[in-house]
């Protein structure tokens, strides 16, 4: 579910395909087959549906997946929200993949593959009542080719892969700290945030660390090959703006500590519910 169903940089169809493809890829697998089902609300125009289908087709082609099964249901007007899409994907594990929370060790580096918070702000800029003028586009993308290229080259040096969608990078970092039982330290200055995105976040009182992404992944990698992984990633599609944003540490287990741009330190915690824009 996503509202609005068409947004700069994509539509709900592409988003559904890319989301599932990325989920499969983050497990270290090559996504192969997708199921895809629609619940359509009476009144959705054929043109809109067609545009979504075209988005799905191109996204599936780009990702190299086949849509092999699915279903379509139509509900009465008012019983749905234009269109719901449900997808499931399966893939084949890459033989070199060795991914899991239990593989993470203190000293490992954490890479973020690109600009953060772009998707969330692009979507929010269209919501009723906000409508700030921007040329921002969602970063929705299929990351499987990039991911699999990295696994091909670096195998078990890639310890963990995650795509920070809803909840943003802060949520993924907290999951890493919580489930690996280690601490995480991150450098605020190393995160890349587009100027427009940063401006919008300032205006709305949102922290970009918690804003959704669709075309970004985070990788925990062996410290000895971190720089090589980074430069390889920077040559791959969707990886040009990658950076090492932090590392896994022995200190403060289960806690994420951010070193702020101005030289301070603070905890980054899990968020409760969605971020809500502030009063002033």
């Amino acid at each position: 579910m996503i509202s609005p169903i068409f947004f700069p940089g994509g539509n709900i169809g592409e988003l559904a395909v890319n989301g599932t493809v990325n989920d499969v890829a983050m497990c270290g697998a090559r996504p192969r087959y997708l199921s895809l089902s629609f619940i359509l609300e009476e009144g959705l125009t054929m043109q809109a549906f067609w545009d979504i289908l075209v988005g799905i087709k191109f996204a599936a082609e780009k990702a190299g997946v086949q849509i092999v099964t699915g279903d379509t249901k139509v509900v009465e007007r008012g019983k749905g929200d234009k269109i719901f899409i449900n997808t499931t994907g399966i893939g084949q594990m890459h033989p070199k993949a060795s991914i899991g929370m239990d593989k993470i060790k203190p000293g490992d580096k954490i890479i973020c593959s690109g600009y953060i918070a772009t998707h969330g702000i692009a979507i929010m800029s269209l919501r009723e009542g906000l409508e700030f003028e921007t040329t921002l586009e969602s970063d929705t993308a299929c990351l499987n080719h990039t991911i699999l290229a990295l696994i091909d080259q670096f195998g078990s040096d890639i310890r963990l892969l995650r795509d920070p969608t809803r909840g943003g990078v802060a949520t993924v970092l907290n999951e890493i700290a919580r489930d690996s039982h280690h601490g995480v330290e991150i450098q605020q200055a190393q995160f890349k945030v587009m100027e427009e995105v940063e401006g919008a976040c300032e205006l709305l009182g949102l922290d970009p660390l918690y804003v959704a992404n669709e075309g970004v992944f985070m990788a925990v990698v062996d410290p000895n090959s971190a720089e090589t992984v980074l430069s390889a990633l920077q040559k791959l599609e969707y990886g040009q703006h990658a950076s090492i944003i932090g590392e896994v540490v022995e200190a403060h287990p289960r806690q994420v500590i951010l070193h702020s741009k101005v030289g301070g330190r603070r905890v980054v915690n899990m968020l409760t519910g969605e971020q809500l824009p502030r009063i002033c």
């Binding site: 922290d207 951010l258 070193h259 702020s260 741009k261 101005v262 030289g263 301070g264 330190r265 603070r266 002033c280």
Partner: peptide, 15 residues
């Protein structure tokens, strides 16, 4: 409260 938020968010209290 905006100042409280900024003091904590930027880690200024530690400085």
């Amino acid at each position: 409260g905006g100042q409280t938020h900024s003091l904590v968010k930027n880690g200024i209290l530690q400085l």
